[in-house]
Design a binder for these strands. Structure first.
Lengths: 211, 211
DNA sequence: GAATATACTGCACGAATGGTTACTTGTCAA
DNA sequence: TTGACAAGTAACCATTCGTGCAGTATATTC
């Protein structure tokens, strides 16, 4: 007998236990399994459970009610140690108000925790226009930015210029700031001190859906 | 009586239930709570549980063993309805063996469920080279592909040519298949029928970490 | 001072649950 | 054809578990 191959019935019952454990957060009792499959005797269920134990798919704590535990090859992370992090997507960014204000929220994306290198204060923006195509950032892409109000020369940033949010290369000059596109057909934006300017964050990632 | 403020004892018991529910995945029975707090009578526990119910912190299913359910202000998504989906990252792809074979796995990424439009059989690949920069796919990017063995003219696919995996534009011809780069300095790969060729999947997304 | 809430003890009932024994039926491989 | 395995039925026992009732002690509130 192959240790891993389950019969049809065993597969069904295993699936049932898995669903119950995940959805209702309560593993079923022996009788509840019986009811679900129209097995009138507890022993009918027990024979299947016995096989699942022998084949190493479940574990049981004797005499403990609902003491069926799944043995999964790739154990799902408990709620405390999620693999994904929820990042807020900002619709419009307006100067003078906190970036992450609720009224700006457009939704959230879940991204891999490692993808963001466990950084905090990250938000996402939908890119409009093709000014950064040469940097691999296309129209409609979702960019991830870490909130910070300063940046280094040459970094890609999300900036606020006169209440307008843009994603550009940051080029600080002596008396002004230049925001360069990656696309040469666009002239750099030169931000003179009389204009409203602030750095919203530094771009740390890009995500795109391809049709 | 404030509906929300718990007494010390109630707080302790609530914490115990929460820990048990999350860690062992099994809410405790009335008697198990009693044992944990040295309460010899089940009614002692019941009076505390009653208070927790009245104050809206837990819910109970009558006569159901372990039928204590936490009522949380921000309910965590149950495992069944995660916001993120784990996608396997494939190291090398070899022809003649199932794509998703375990030995190919390099790890997993968690991505938003909506990002992939709830599609199944999705895998991820690390892009090598700059042949697709004009399509916004850079060296080192992670591309997501949906497993399929056919594609339409002009789509970006992950293809296997002579045991080598590449990401290219798909251009089927009468007697051969052409794989075009987005970068004009690379000549198209012309796949004649004598070569091993298969489509691994169609590219549906891109993800990049920016430094 | 009475009413109310909290936090118990102690006991007992019945339903829910796990376990066992005995027996049956069908399939499949040696 | 025999034997192992799977998947049951049926009846029954023992334990676990939720619940109900009676009662106590303390603190808080009106």
């Amino acid at each position: 007998m192959d240790k891993k191959i389950l019969t049809q019935r065993q597969e069904e019952v295993f699936e049932f236990i898995r669903k119950r454990s995940e959805e209702t957060r309560l593993p079923p009792t022996v009788r509840e399994i019986g009811e679900a499959f129209n097995i009138s005797s507890t022993n009918g269920v027990r024979s299947i459970l016995g096989a699942l134990i022998k084949k190493g798919h479940i574990k049981r704590s004797p005499r403990l009610s609902r003491g069926i535990e799944l043995i999964e090859v790739a154990p799902k992370p408990s709620l405390g140690e999620q693999l994904g992090v929820e990042i807020p997507i900002l619709g419009r960014i307006a100067a003078g108000q906190p970036i992450l204000a609720v009224q700006n929220l457009e939704g959230t994306v879940t991204v891999d925790r490692d993808f963001l290198a466990r950084q905090t204060n990250v938000f996402a923006l939908r890119v409009k226009g093709d000014s950064m195509v040469q940097a691999g950032i296309l129209d409609g892409d979702l960019v991830f930015a870490r909130q910070q109000n300063s940046a280094e020369d040459g970094q890609i940033i999300a900036a606020l210029v006169d209440d307008e949010a843009t994603v550009k290369y940051y080029k600080p000059k002596d008396s002004s700031v230049e925001l360069h596109s990656a696309n040469p057909i666009y002239a750099p934006i030169i931000v003179t001190p009389d204009r409203h300017f602030s750095i919203a964050g530094r771009i740390i990632g890009v995500m795109r859906k391809v049709n």
